[in-house]
């Protein structure tokens, strides 16, 4: 076992840094996490919006992901309401994407001549984003360590060209590489003895507190209002942009993200019935679709954008 604290075998942050370096070397823009509460790395506009339109795009980033319902008050060492995903998006998907993925595992110390890596069918769908794709769960020695997806549709729009998306479940991957059975026991900083900081040191208390919030104390009425406010704001921003051609696809999309997270919290509070659930999902999807459509009219969305006619003041 290596002594280098930056080795992915030694530390959680070493794993992240190794992946960042690897994908930077493949020409990816290394972004930082999006500064909003999202349920998965896919929600980052660097994936959702950039997957739309004709422009090539390569990016990689860590995204903290919040799934309020998955909280277990810090009692289950492997089930968290907050965890990290490492997200890679390559548009158009390169011919050798599978090979690149296998090289990335090798960079993490998972030698393909010793470890059994398998691509097991797993179709991906995000009803709230109006998105779906085909791909696999990637298994390493029987452990699901990543998801691999070719986006076919995002925000209700056919992807052309198609993006390839890789999502590494960082905690699981780190547990496997570090040889640790409990997520909280992961070595975060790669130090030993008194200097060692574990994943549990960093996050256990947060898991306890947020579980209380998610399941018991989040104000339901407030959340419902937040959902409505975000929904209205999103629509208003889209409409205003449509009206004078000064589009605000990205701020509008932020509101869609807010609505989605409010919905996830309401869901965790157990106040959404089966039929309501479907209607909430459809409302978020409508927002995502509108944002995607607006994005396609912007320059980054690939549209030939004339200079705005309306005054610049």
């Amino acid at each position: 076992m290596t002594d280098d604290p930056m080795s992915p075998k030694k530390s959680f942050q070493g794993l992240i840094l190794t992946l960042q370096r690897f994908w930077a070397e493949q020409g990816c823009v290394i972004l930082q996490p999006y500064d909003m509460e999202v349920g998965a790395g896919t929600f980052h506009p660097a994936t959702t919006l950039r997957a739309l339109g004709p422009r090539p795009w390569k990016a990689a980033y860590v995204q903290p992901s919040r799934r309020p319902k998955d909280g277990r008050y810090g009692e289950n060492p492997n089930r968290f309401q907050h965890y990290y995903q490492f997200q890679v998006i390559l548009k158009p998907s390169p011919e050798n994407l599978q090979e690149l993925y296998l090289y990335s595992l090798k960079a993490l110390g998972l030698d393909p001549t010793v470890h059994d890596v398998r691509f097991v069918e797993d179709d991906w769908e995000s009803p709230t984003l109006g998105a779906w794709g085909l791909g696999w769960e990637c298994w390493c020695d029987g452990m699901e360590v990543s998801q691999f997806t070719y986006f076919q549709q995002v925000a209700g729009v056919d992807c052309n060209p198609v993006s390839g998306e890789l999502t590494y479940g960082l905690e699981r991957l780190a547990m496997y590489i570090q040889g640790v059975d409990r997520g909280f026991d992961l070595n975060f900083n790669g130090r030993d003895g008194a200097e060692k900081v574990t994943y549990g040191d960093v996050f256990r208390q947060a898991e306890q507190e947020y579980s209380r919030f998610n399941f018991e104390n989040a104000d339901v009425e407030l959340l419902k209002r937040h959902f409505q406010d975000a929904e209205q704001e999103c629509k208003a921003l889209i409409e205003a942009g449509e009206a004078d051609g000064r589009l605000m696809a990205m701020p509008a999309y932020d509101q869609a993200i807010k609505a989605s997270h409010a919905f996830n919290l309401l869901d965790a509070r157990g106040v959404i019935s089966v039929t309501e659930r479907q209607s909430y999902i459809l409302r978020v999807r409508d927002l995502a679709k509108a944002c995607g459509a607006a994005w396609l009219k912007t320059e980054a969305g690939g549209a030939a954008v004339p200079l705005p006619l309306a005054g610049r003041g």
Binding site: P92, S93, P94, E95, G133, L134, G135, Y150, Q152, C159, N160, P161, V162, G164
Partner: peptide, 14 residues
């Protein structure tokens, strides 16, 4: 079936 890259062909995977 699916598309991939910049192509239009559909196959089960690339």
């Amino acid at each position: 079936s699916m598309r991939w890259g910049s192509g239009t062909l559909r196959w089960v995977r690339p």
